[in-house]
Design a protein around this nucleic acid. Structure first.
Lengths: 164, 164
DNA sequence: GCTCTGGAGTTGAAACTTCAACCACCCTTA
DNA sequence: TAAGGGTGGTTGAAGTTTCAACTCCAGAGC
């Protein structure tokens, strides 16, 4: 950690543009879902993942992984969703430590009711304001950032092992 | 609101790539700041904005605007920062309703201590993983998304006025 | 069979955000 | 000069997220 390479003026412009857009876009989508469907974006994501899974079921840990939730966060979230009657928890067959989370019919209905407004919002504020080239670029940018985070993560694990 | 134009498979790929990258990147940056500097990213942003302002002061409403906080959220956040001794609130001169928020020396020191690690994280996971072309594209994408949100906002206001 | 390490999941407390009032003050208008 | 509406800002409650324990169970090694 020698000297810090501060951001140049041009980099700061990029950084601000990125932060402003992602923050405001996320806030906009979240508000729309809360207002029209009574759930935050993060919970919508959980319902989507469950709806896409066979039997509309998923092990808690798998659900956490695909929806990018920590175990703790997922546990709290599922408790809230359960209170709404949108999901139920059942013990897993094979592993007596495990639980599976299942999307109920009410949950599916809530998702079906929420989806049109949500997709319309996303389309209006993301897909409709960008060109085809920009959308291609966005996909690759997203992949590069995610890949960068994953390799860092792997490196950290390797280092931690070496330290022992 | 006729029929919904659902996302195509290609659009879903873009959408997932976008959401995964922005969520994980934000989480990573936030964790780094909480761990190393004891403040969430959002509070760091507030300190930055204050530090860039003349006299390190800003009216609450102006601070809310530049840092993209709701008034309520800012009020709570400033209370927390005040508890740390990082900012103070003073009544505004001209307008007796108003308050100015001022960055203290302790707050500036906390910001100075936090900045290197934060900038390094941002550089490592954003600027270092993208090409110059991608960074250009990212800036324009960000601007387009923000502009799209702003015009929607303006339209909503216009409609609301017409409805009266 | 027993221990030991690690994985699956939960919990409670504290921190942060949202939402809907709410108060105090400014400014316009009549 | 007294309404009245709008702006600046706060508050409290409810909802959400984080963090650090903690419990329970599986699998490996002996």
């Amino acid at each position: 950690m020698d000297e810090v390479r501060w951001l140049t003026a041009a980099e700061q412009e990029i950084w601000r543009a990125y932060m402003t857009a992602t923050n405001e876009f996320a806030a906009h989508v979240d508000r729309q879902l809360r207002r029209d469907a009574g759930m935050p974006m993060a919970y919508y994501e959980i319902l989507v993942r469950l709806s896409e899974s066979p039997e509309r079921c998923l092990r808690m840990s798998d659900l956490a992984e695909v929806s990018l939730f920590s175990r703790s966060r997922l546990s709290h979230a599922v408790s809230a969703l359960e209170k709404n009657g949108w999901v139920v928890r059942r013990p897993a067959d094979a592993d007596r430590r495990g639980w599976v989370c299942e999307l109920t019919d009410e949950g599916f209905a809530a998702l079906a009711a929420a989806a049109p407004g949500h997709v319309s919002t996303v389309r209006a504020h993301l897909f409709d304001v960008l060109t085809a080239e920009q959308l291609d670029a966005l996909r690759e940018i997203g992949r590069a950032i995610t890949a960068g985070l994953r390799t860092e993560c792997a490196e950290a694990r390797r280092e931690a092992e070496e330290c022992e």
